[in-house]
Structure formats: C-alpha cells, structure tokens
Design a binder for these strands. Structure first.
Lengths: 198, 198
DNA sequence: TTGATTTATGAATCACTATTCAAATATAGA
DNA sequence: TCTATATTTGAATAGTGATTCATAAATCAA
C-alpha cells in the first residue's frame, strides 16, 4: 500500500485560488493550476472531478465558514440585534479581507455560479443569507431597525455594495485603508437600517 | 456599388445582448449570435472585429448614454446638489431598468472588462464616475452632504449595491416591484450621504 | 447588359485546452 | 527483496468554437 505524499488536495485548491484570482476563472488553464500547485495535470483530476468543482469548493469553504460563524452569533442571547448586526459585519469583513485572492475570486465568479446553477450552488450561501435576515428581522420586531425597509432589497443592496468595495480593495489595495473601509461600511449599513426618528 | 440592406450592425448588437444575457458572455457562441441576428457567422466579422469588441460596444453605448445625460444634469444651475443627486439616481435607474437583458450583461461582465483592460475599458465609464463625484462633492461643500464620508468608498459601495439589486431584478423580476426598488435605493443612498444632525 | 465594387456567406481552418488513461513510480506489508 | 496496491504522471485525445477566406450574390454605373 502506498500513502499519499504531502497534501495535494490543499495545494491544488490554494494554487487554483491564486490562478483564478490573477486571470479569472474562464481564462485560467488547468495546466497553470497544476504548475503552481507543483503537481501534474493528471493529479488535478484525481482530487477534483473537473475545473468547475474546484471553483465550487472555493465557494463552499468560504460560505460554510461564514455560515457556521453566523449561526453561533445568531443564537447568542446575550447580544441585542444591533450588537449582532455589528458583529455580523465584522465577521463578513474579516472573512473577505483575510485573503485578497479569495475575495477576488468570490467577487468575480459569484454571479456565474449563482445564476448558472439554478438549484443553488452551495447550500451554505443560502443558509447564510437566511441567518442574516433573521438578525435584521429580530431588530425590526423591537423597532430598533426600521420595519419599513424591505429585508430582501436591503440584503441584496448592502451585500452588493460590500462585494464591490472589497473587490476594489483586493485589486487596488493601496487605495483603501482597511480600517476606514470597515468604518464606512458600518456607517452605511447602519444608516440604511436603523430606525431613526427625525 | 452595392448598398447594405437593413441594419445588420444593430441586428447583431441586439442579438448579442440577448444571447450574452441568456448564457453569459463566455458561454455564448458566435454562431448563436449570428443565428439570432439572422445573419451568417461571417457577417459578424464584417461589422465587428471579434467577440470582445461586440461586448465592448454594448458597454460603450450604455455608459456613453449615461455620461451624456449626467453631464447635462451636472451643469444645470437651477438645481441644488440634493436635487441633482436625486435625478442622478433616477437616471441610472431608468437606464438599467429599460432593458433587462442589458442590465444582466452589464452586471455580469463589468468586472471582467474593468479589471481585464487596465487602461480602462471605456472612457465614458470613468468620466461618468467623475461627474457623479462632482455632484457629491458640491453637496459636501455646502454641507448638505456629510463631508466625513469618503467619496470613493461611497461611490463603490452604492454603485455595487445598485448593480446587485438590478441584476436580481433582471433575473427574477417577479420578486421586485420596480417602484419599490427605486424608492428603497433612494432611501439607502440618501441615508448614506445626507448630513443629518442627531 | 456588363463589369466593377461592395457585401454576405458558411464550410474549412486553426488554435486552444479540459480531460483521459496507459504506463511509471512509490510505498507497505509479507 | 518482492508483490500488490495506491498514487502520480504527462503525452495523447477529443471536443470546442472563434475566426478566416474563397466564393457567391447583390447593387450600381456606364
């Protein structure tokens, strides 16, 4: 019996993230991924069924991690909705600023995956959204959040803004200070949802 | 001498918008575009240099139209910054809700084009952004807009939100009422920028 | 009607690259 | 050491689809 040397599965995934981020999924060659991973092209197909499955794995990992984190947050009862909302933004922010390459891949390919696979490309993404909505709806019940805001519209709008901003940071990170980005995003998001009497 | 019959150039562009919106630029075949346009594949190359040039033309048309409209708006001196800001949102909203297919193409391919062509994929997009910034900065000078907001961050965030929302409307338009979308977008955008004393 | 010129065609070309698979290699246990 | 089994390899395959170009068709002017 022979044992696998090293961890090619991980090597391949990391290489794919790097290559996809640099040249975009569609323009990335499997041979390049293999080269960066330090394995043969044949090995790619030992660990992944095909090119698209590699991309899906990248997404799954990101959204699963976010989902699991958010699940814990939602179920805490020592925090009020505003505190949860604030933590949620931090959580998303941290997940995407942890790796510029991952941020770029997610931002660039989410659309294709999301609308290309009608059944939903990863269950964790859908579940993650639902959890986020729960936090917002909790806040609406106690009227700390504006109950007139449409949750679905809110979610699309602010996630879209988030995405665009993070991509631009990832591509041109000298233009943005991360601390300022975080502060601005929180400011925008809260202004959009807090119930403010004027 | 022979005169061209009909307007194949336009037919091809409209067909490309339709096909690209349905299957995504990368998965769209030139033969399909030709079929929908009712011309031969050879004709595509009489009117456009290659596939990418067709995509670029779609973008150029959209951003040029928006740029020209915004230029007129910016230079009016019978409107204050808040009124201009409001009109600007209407203008963008109308441009993208006019054609679902165009909205989908723009939303899906803007990233690839924007970051694939470092010199800027269309001058009109850049100029359009500059004009928008001018409106915001005017408002900051008179302090009707919050001068602490970073214009660049604001712009990326709200355009990103806009984009995400419009795409989802274009793909699943039964989920969103257009009037409600417009109202919500204005609410979010103004909440993000207005200088409100609390 | 004819010839010149422009426009349109679509089969053939050509480049590209994801994927396969037969062979080679490495390891563990006997 | 030797054999069985698992792993790795990369050249060959195979499918795709953008683009080309020789040919045909249409129009106009003479």
């Amino acid at each position: 019996m022979r044992i696998k040397e090293g961890n090619k599965e991980t090597d391949i995934l990391l290489a794919a993230i790097k290559v996809f981020a640099e040249t975009g999924y569609h323009n990335s060659k499997m041979s390049k991924v293999a080269e960066v991973a330090g394995v043969s092209t044949g090995s790619l197909y030992v660990y992944y069924k095909n090119k698209e499955q590699i991309l899906l794995k990248i997404f799954e990992d990101v959204w699963k991690k976010l989902h699991d984190g958010l699940l814990i947050l939602v179920e805490r009862n020592d925090l009020n909705p505003i505190e949860k909302f604030d933590s949620m933004i931090d959580m998303i922010f941290d997940a995407f600023t942890e790796s510029q390459a991952v941020a770029i891949v997610i931002a660039n390919e989410q659309h294709h995956l999301q609308f290309g696979n009608p059944e939903g490309f990863t269950e964790y993404f859908e579940k993650f959204l639902k959890l986020g909505e729960r936090i917002v709806e909790e806040g609406m019940k106690t009227e700390v959040f504006n109950p007139n805001v449409d949750v679905k519209i809110f979610r699309h709008f602010y996630l879209g803004g988030f995405r665009e901003l993070i991509t631009n940071w990832a591509v041109n990170n000298e233009d943005f200070k991360l601390s300022k980005l975080r502060q601005n995003i929180k400011f925008f998001a809260k202004n959009g949802i807090l119930n403010i009497k004027r």
